[in-house]
Simulated assay, not measured.
Amino acid sequence: MAYDTEKKLEDLILRAIRQVLAEQLPAKRRLYVVFADAFDCRCVNFLRSLSPADDVTVLVDEIQAEQVRCDIEQACPFASVVLTSQARSLPLTDSLTVYPVASRDFVVKAALGLADTFAARWLARCFAAGSAVHLQLSGLARFTGREPAAYVQQILGYYRKLLEYGITIGHHLPQEKAGNPVPAAVTEKKAPPVVTCQDKVLTAADLYPYDKGTILLVGAHTVVTSFAREAALSRGIEIRRT
């Protein structure tokens, strides 16, 4: 009888310890991956870069599901795969949605508020919920440098509109959890970041992931477009040749 009582007490203590430890563990960030365009190697490479530290959910439509499910599971085995038809019930609070690949068509529709596809409707839901959205820079269409200047300015205007909406664009995911930015008062003053760019052509769109004060080192033979110089000047980014 005494043994049973002691055993129950031990179980209660262990259960309490496990509960305390579980509460002390940082909550995983809820991360949704949405494919605005065709699933390709860029999507696979992005999935491979993810970490189990995030609670990853990949949203695919019924047509894509059978074709890409195996690739998703191999690239990101800890991710959950959910059909877009079942995505309505997914919670968006404190989440981050990432578009690994986004065509110019999607960017234009997103900037204009057109919601005629699942990817665009999901974006509208994120806005309504106040959740964070990120576009991978590697998944955006690049300028060739031969486009008419007016066309380039128009497209850049759509990107600027997305930035005004609070969407982040860059090579790396935002570090802070959605809704929990680091207060400016507690951030330490840091030396300006220095980034090396190996691109043969540097356009204004390439500058989006860099913050004010960044020093961008480019090669001696890198072609820097006039729009890139204007954008760098307006955003406080210094371009230096190595």
Rank of each mutant, 00 (worst) to 15 (best):
L12H: 00
L50W: 13
A231S: 09
Q24K: 04
E23N: 00
T57W: 01
A220S: 11
A129G: 01
Q175E: 14
G179R: 00
D71A: 10
D94T: 07
Y159G: 01
F118M: 08
T168S: 07
G219F: 07
R229F: 08
Q67T: 06
A220W: 08
L135K: 01
E188T: 00
G236E: 07
F227D: 12
Q74W: 09
T57G: 05
Y32L: 11
A205F: 06
P77T: 04
A150T: 04
A132L: 10
P52A: 05
A220G: 04
P26H: 15
V195L: 12
L114E: 13
G145E: 13
E230K: 10
V82T: 12
E73N: 03
V82C: 14
V20K: 10
Y158M: 08
I169W: 04
Y165N: 00
Y151T: 10
G166D: 02
F39C: 09
P209I: 06
D211R: 04
A115E: 12
I13D: 07
I63Q: 11
Y151P: 02
G236D: 04
Y159Q: 01
Q154G: 06
T93Y: 06
A205C: 01
A38M: 07
D199E: 12
T196Q: 11
L163K: 06
L162Y: 12
R104C: 02
V20R: 13
T97P: 02
T117A: 12
A75K: 02
T203S: 05
A205V: 02
A178V: 03
C126T: 02
D61F: 10
D37A: 02
I13K: 07
D61S: 08
T203G: 03
P26Y: 15
L162T: 04
D37T: 02
D105E: 09
V201M: 12
Y159E: 02
K7S: 11
L112F: 15
D11Y: 01
K212D: 11
T203D: 06
G170E: 13
E23M: 08
V194Q: 10
K28D: 14
P77R: 01
Y159V: 00
K109M: 13
G166I: 03
G166Y: 05
Y32V: 04
R30E: 13
L233A: 13
A27N: 09
F143D: 08
R146T: 11
L114G: 01
A102W: 07
P209C: 12
Q175H: 03
F35Y: 03
V98D: 07
A231H: 11
R125S: 09
G113W: 13
A120Q: 06
I17M: 15
E164I: 00
T57E: 04
F78C: 08
V34Y: 10
A149Y: 09
G170D: 12
T187R: 14
L162A: 08
A149N: 03
A232D: 00
E6N: 00
D61T: 04
A53T: 01
V182E: 13
Y210Q: 05
T144P: 00
V20A: 15
L216W: 14
K190A: 15
L31Y: 06
A27Y: 14
T242W: 11
C126Y: 02
Q175L: 12
A75W: 14
V34R: 03
C126N: 11
A228M: 13
